[in-house]
Nucleic acid binder design. Structure first.
Length: 930
RNA sequence: GCGGAUAUGGCGUAAUUGGUAGCCGCGCUAGAUUUAGGAUCUAGUGCCGUAAGGCGUGUGGGUUCGAGUCCCUCUAUCCGCACCA
């Protein structure tokens, strides 16, 4: 009986399915373990061999944890709202739901073939109303909450209203867009609409005019993480900055907690670093520069903050204030209008118009130094000097106060600007040379700096800060780069906002009337008047009031899905208290790095919000996170002689004028082209001729992204048919460390497949399953215990490649020992089962066990047996290892030394002399110095 | 520019965490079996050398009886952030 993987895999997949082997329930008698994969977006292309890498790893770990006695939650679902299905709908008119369902079905089929242990009863789809009801629900809660900076948590908006009614806004320290100062009486005198407008400033989900990334081609706004280098991540279309009225989530209020939380979770340093960069905390001061009287237009009354004629800037280098030689405002800054003098007005206007025309992409592409003098001056608060105020687009309106103090000697951007416009540069650090470039490092001793002279930079920063707060020149302030997340998308295929408009102000639909189901539309395009597709829906109103026309972005549905898996069918709550308190959070999360600044930030924010309002018990959603590497494609090329249909082999291509063409990797083996299949591949190659090299046609190769258009996609279904799911699983793990990216290489798969067949044959004699009931020998037991120990520690450290190797070594050794004993096979079956569940299950049953192997428990290894029987310690002389020696485990070091020194091998090396030194490490003789 | 990571045979990788560098697999070489191919089995395979031996973990240095592993220098590659004041 050969190893018939197709029969075995089909049989057991059916059995697991029918017997609900992977059904999970709350079981308080066992410790829980929650293993989660980042759920996929079901694209039309289906899975390629790269996708399952993380899924295989999480499946192995889940099965292992189950064998270890944990109650393991291992669910799967689909992130089903999104642009591709909608783009397809726009082009074909087919409803995105149909496309999505079809794709999900295909994904499910492919996943099932790999033998994963998902509890499919818990499947979630973000596009189903039962699911997005809770996305909408969370939105309403955010809408009805504000962020209290004192308590550092979200609080109900009703508390804010109460405070306004009793004490006015003075006592409130809350995250907001714009401070409003009013007394309780003033609040009460305001109209409902005015009150709502003020409250909108505080809500965690709020509507505001914000600068957004507008992608005209996609017809929607995008979040910051969806834009890279001024192009949309999806599609690569240009994105411009535009002011629009949009929903946003006040993620920035959580910046510090998002930062602090990183210290409590086991993520890789690089991922934490990425998030730290994205949050971008910087400590500094906000300092006030008063305007020089002749520098302002006397006709405009000042409405600047603090009620004074001044500019507030943010700096992390308070120590360099003596070196400020000019100031710069962002072109969009609200200060600009106040400061520009009549003489400069025309020039400034022209400049601002020109910066507006430039997209962000252009600004990044050609870093031309541009700017214009405003005509105004400010007073340096430290030196009393008068400094000119400029306007330039190198200062960002969205960060800090949109205005900076420029210290050209110690900031490279200010330096470039100063050189370009001929502004003075004052060096402040002893001995630094600023004739060619600025000195940006935070080191050295201060000079030219009044009361800071003689201090080192860190000391000077501290002292300057002290001086500023003592003299009421400004405040100590922490700034974050993290912005609020723009939450509206002018698209169809997303969650509708549970919001209607009355008198121009938004109000939420009552929670008990959720879900607000996505309406039908005739087309998936914007309306003729430029409204989002929902503008086409009939009766899209609530109690006669118009409903919001935007939908939520992709990250809305993926932000709390891990909670829904805990209690997926609950119609009363996102997750029940009981389920949440049992499952708590994800113990192991596996997925790609591409979500570092998107999903993984939003999810953490969303979770913290739910924590604040008492829905969840854990502050962090994902305790441990592993980023699996990408599996790249290995493309092959053929070389066609230009103007002919003749193809020349790789080694000879330089003798001809050729063009390089991608060829389907599935008709290439070992870089050798199957010319017959090549001719059949496409009609135009039917008459192809070849110039061979040693009788073969060799292809060129390169590592590229796995993609349909590069003909380098390897489909897991094909591998499963040829080798079986168990081989694919083992091979993907064997390829290398989980976190590393690596090219797919079909060549090596034979080795792994051979191993499984060898293992199978070891327990089959003349076509029958055969195991011996004899007791195992010491050597056989040693092989077993060594393997258990190694595989266990490898799984626990997620080193699955070495675990597979260990198993292969084990089988080789058992073959050498001709061991086919039940006593050995039974535990081996269990430890193999996470990796190759089908063959393990088959052997398990052939051994006469009826219950499924997943209910067995992971075998223990016997440490003392291993120690007793693992001998051969290396013995070195003068640091050079000469031989291995069998030594007993002995605490008596003196006795050990004697044994070693007395041995004939040692005598040969020390040649009768007395050794100078004997070094013993961990109870073993290691080195003898002669 | 700032930050993170990596560097070992022809290739993917391993090294009990400071103790025989190259496990396991691919590939390659030779042989056995087979009508042939495939499959299987046996032996070999870091480099130089007929051999003895020597050299070897990106570079240069250091600590140590002993370094792929620890410290410093440089180099290369990959990733993240980037007019963030």
């Amino acid at each position: 009986m050969e190893y018939n993987f197709l029969r075995i895999e089909e049989k057991w997949q059916k059995y697991w399915n029918q017997n609900n082997i992977y059904k999970t329930d709350i079981d308080k008698s066992k410790p829980k373990y929650y293993v989660l994969d980042m759920f996929p977006y079901p694209s039309g292309a289906g899975l390629h061999v790269g996708h399952p890498l993380g899924y295989i790893a999480s499946d192995i770990y889940s099965r292992y944890k189950t064998l270890k006695g944990f109650n393991v939650l291992h669910p799967m679902g689909f992130d089903a709202f999104g642009l591709p299905a909608e783009q397809y709908a726009v082009e074909t008119g087919q409803h995105p739901e149909i496309t999505t369902e079809k794709n999900i079905e295909r994904y499910r089929e492919q996943l099932d073939k790999l033998g994963f242990c998902y509890d499919w009863d818990r499947e979630v789809k973000t596009c189903s109303p039962e699911y997005y009801k809770w996305t909408q629900w969370a939105f309403i809660r955010m809408f009805n909450s504000y962020y209290c900076n004192d308590a550092q948590q979200a609080r109900p908006i009703s508390e804010l209203i109460e405070a306004f009614e009793t004490e006015g806004s003075g006592c409130i320290n809350a995250a907001c867009n714009e401070q409003h100062i009013f007394m309780a009486e003033e609040w009460k005198a305001k109209s409902k609409k005015e009150q709502q407008e003020i409250l909108m400033n505080y809500r965690i989900a709020y509507l505001a005019d914000t600068m957004v990334n507008w992608c005209a081609y996609l017809g929607t706004v995008l979040a910051n993480d969806e834009v890279v280098n001024g192009l949309s991540v999806r599609g690569g279309f240009p994105v411009e900055q535009r002011k629009m009225r949009q929903w946003s989530l006040r993620v920035s209020a959580y910046a510090q907690r998002l930062l602090d939380g990183l210290e409590t979770i086991e993520w890789t340093e690089s991922l934490k670093e990425t998030q730290k960069n994205w949050i971008g905390r910087s400590e500094g001061v906000e300092i006030r520069f008063d305007l020089s009287p002749q520098g302002t237009t006397s006709s405009t009354p000042s409405i600047l903050p603090c009620g004074e004629r001044s500019i507030i800037v943010f700096t992390t280098r308070a120590d360099t204030i003596f070196g400020v030689t000019f100031m710069v405002l962002a072109p969009e800054s609200e200060y600009v209008a106040q400061i520009v003098t009549p003489e400069q007005k025309a020039e400034v206007k022209t400049y601002i118009a020109s910066t507006k025309r430039r997209t962000e992409r252009e600004r990044i592409a050609d870093r031309k130094i541009t700017g214009v003098f405003s005509g105004g001056y400010a007073i340096n608060p430290f030196s009393g000097e008068k400094v000119p105020i400029w306007i330039s687009d190198y200062v960002l309106a969205g960060y800090g106060t949109g205005a900076i103090m420029a210290v050209p000697a110690h900031d490279s951007r200010d330096y470039a600007f100063a050189k370009h416009f001929g502004l003075p540069i004052i060096p402040l650090i002893d001995g630094c040379d600023v004739s060619e470039e600025s000195f940006d490092a935070k080191e050295g001793v201060m000079v030219n700096s009044g009361f800071l002279n003689g201090l080192t930079v860190p000391e000077a920063i501290r002292k300057a800060k002290e001086y500023i707060s003592d003299n009421n020149l400004g405040t100590i302030k922490v700034n974050y780069r993290l912005r609020d997340a723009i939450f509206s998308r002018q698209r169809y295929w997303g969650e509708p906002f549970p919001v209607y408009y009355q008198d121009g102000m938004p109000y939420n639909i009552p929670e008990e009337q959720l879900p607000l189901v996505l309406p039908e539309v005739d087309k998936f395009l914007p309306t003729e008047t430029g409204e989002p597709p929902l503008g086409r829906a009939k009766n899209w109103t609530y109690k006669g009031y118009p409903l919001e026309l935007s939908t939520m972005p992709g990250f809305a549905g993926s932000s709390a899905y891990y909670l829904r898996y805990m209690d997926p069918h609950n119609t009363e709550a996102l997750v029940s208290k009981e389920a949440d308190e049992y499952w708590r959070n994800v113990d192991l999360y596996i997925g790609g790095t591409e979500h570092a600044t998107g999903h993984l930030i939003y999810s953490r924010f969303w979770n913290k919000f739910l924590y604040d309002i008492g829905v969840v018990v854990e502050q962090e959603p994902f305790k441990k996170l592993i980023n699996q590497g990408m599996i790249q494609g290995c493309s092959n090329f053929v070389y066609r002689i230009k103007g002919t249909n003749t193809f020349v082999s790789y080694g000879l291509k330089d003798n001809y004028d050729t063009s390089e063409l991608h060829v389907d990797v599935n008709i290439v083996n070992n870089n050798i082209l199957d010319t017959k299949r090549f001719k059949l591949w496409r009609p135009e190659y039917e008459t192809a001729e070849f110039v061979f090299e040693d009788g073969e046609y060799y292809c060129g190769s390169a590592v590229e992204k796995m993609s349909k258009s590069l003909y380098n996609v390897v489909n897991p279904d094909d591998i499963v048919v040829t080798y079986g799911a168990d081989t694919l699983r083992l091979y993907e793990m064997f390829l290398g460390p989980l976190e590393q990216s690596k090219p797919w290489d079909t060549k090596g798969i034979d080795g792994v497949h051979r191993f499984l067949r060898k293992f199978w044959r070891l327990f089959h004699h003349s076509n029958d399953f055969f195991v011996s009931e004899d007791a195992a020998t010491k050597d056989e037991l040693k092989v077993l215990h060594k393997t258990i120990k190694k595989v266990q520690s490898d799984i626990e450290s997620f080193s699955f490649n070495t675990a597979v190797s260990a198993f292969m070594i084990c089988v080789n050794e058992l073959v050498d020992l001709k061991c086919n004993k039940k006593e050995i096979l039974e535990p081996l079956t269990i430890i193999l089962s996470p990796f190759a569940p089908h063959i393990a299950e088959e052997l398990w049953h052939l051994l006469g066990n009826t219950a499924s192997v997943v209910t067995a428990s992971f075998p223990e290894y016997d440490e003392s047996f291993l120690i007793e029987n693992s001998f051969k310690y290396p013995i070195s002389f003068n640091g050079k290892t000469r031989f291995k020696m069998e030594l007993p485990l002995d605490d008596d070091i003196e006795q050990l030394k004697k044994t070693v020194l007395a041995s004939p091998q040692t005598q040969k090396f020390i040649d009768g002399k007395e050794p100078k030194k004997v070094i013993v490490v961990k109870g073993k003789i290691v080195n003898i110095v002669i």
